[in-house]
């Protein structure tokens, strides 16, 4: 082979080799660039901001960890944490079992109009928190509201019960509203999980003499394990991010005695009303880390995550 030709083919090979080396980086580059701009940079910036007292982005005073120290000594922060935790607890305790119940009902072979019910139960989730908040703030009106009228007729509860003005009743009202909004979402996931459980397992259980409860306990629930763990995690994360529902229902504020104050509302009030983005960043980071810990604990308790043995 002439020398020149050998040189050309080597060059082509080298170019191809380089292109092959670069190609994967080019493929991932759009994501990496966008992630760096819209993900990593804001994260790093917000962490830095959390070390400052700010008045908008220009007036900043370095305070080190003082924002965190102040936050942990602020009774309002702990009130927000307590309210959010209570809401999360009741949301999970009510929404997942209610979603499971509905899904079992709709999965029954004798159930007719399954698609219609599925749509009906899921639709509150489609309209969003603001719409649901407005709707329920009308339903909860004392004296003339539908909920008080219904409860009065059924249980004799006073007509002037003030769901959204009595600090003791704000959280039950929020939990009820959230239940109505989210139960269909859980139901759809669980229904999909139910339909993926092998029918053979039920037949085998039946042959072994298992009754309905035993089939549910030993076949259905284990079959739904992954779906339920997923729902547990996203319910927890979603509940910890609660904002628009109480914001709308309580007239754009934390409600009486701050009984509807959530962590995200606390963050918003400090960041956008008080104007301290640094403090709001500290709250945001604390929320993110808190959620991470709660999620890991949940994964550990449900056995979905086991730390690697040393």
């Amino acid at each position: 082979m002439p020398y020149a030709e050998t040189r050309i083919s080597e060059r082509v090979r080298e170019r191809r080799w380089r292109a092959e080396q670069i190609a994967p980086y080019l493929f991932v580059a759009p994501f990496v660039i966008l992630f760096l701009i819209f993900g990593a940079y804001p994260l790093a910036k917000s962490f830095l901001l959390s070390l400052y007292i700010t008045n908008g982005p220009r007036d900043v005073v370095f305070v080190g960890l003082d924002n965190f120290r102040y936050m942990f000594s602020d009774p309002n922060f702990w009130k927000a944490v307590r309210n959010t935790a209570v809401f999360t607890f009741w949301s999970i305790v009510l929404q997942i079992p209610a979603g499971l119940g509905l899904a079992l009902l709709l999965n029954s072979p004798w159930m007719r109009g399954r698609n219609l019910f599925r749509l009906a139960f899921f639709s509150p989730n489609l309209v969003g928190g603001v719409f649901v908040g407005v709707l329920f703030s009308v339903l909860f009106v004392p004296q003339y509201g539908l909920i008080n009228r219904g409860l009065h007729a059924l249980f004799g509860i006073p007509l002037d019960t003030r769901w959204l003005a009595d600090p003791a009743l704000v959280m039950p009202a929020l939990v009820m509203t959230s239940l109505w909004m989210s139960v269909g979402f859980h139901m759809v996931y669980i229904l999909a999980g139910l339909q993926s459980i092998e029918k053979d397992l039920y037949e085998a259980a039946l042959l072994d003499g298992a009754n309905s409860w035993q089939q549910f306990w030993h076949v259905t629930l284990p079959g739904l394990r992954h779906v339920l763990i997923f729902l547990l995690l996203i319910s927890t994360i979603g509940s910890f991010q609660l904002f628009e529902l109480p914001w709308v229902m309580l007239g754009r504020g934390p409600g009486p005695d701050a009984s509807g104050l959530t962590i995200v509302m606390y963050l918003y009030l400090n960041g956008y009303v008080a104007g301290d983005l640094g403090y709001a960043s500290a709250v945001g980071w604390t929320l993110a880390l808190g959620l991470l810990v709660v999620s890991l604990v949940q994964l550990r308790l449900t056995g979905a995550w086991k730390p690697r043995a040393s």
Binding site: V138, V141, P142, Q143, Y144, G145, D160, R162, L164, A165
Partner: peptide, 13 residues
């Protein structure tokens, strides 16, 4: 004193 809130309920009250 008492308070029932605003809107229609206030009208009725």
């Amino acid at each position: 004193a008492s308070d029932l809130g605003g809107g229609q309920i206030f009208t009725r009250a």
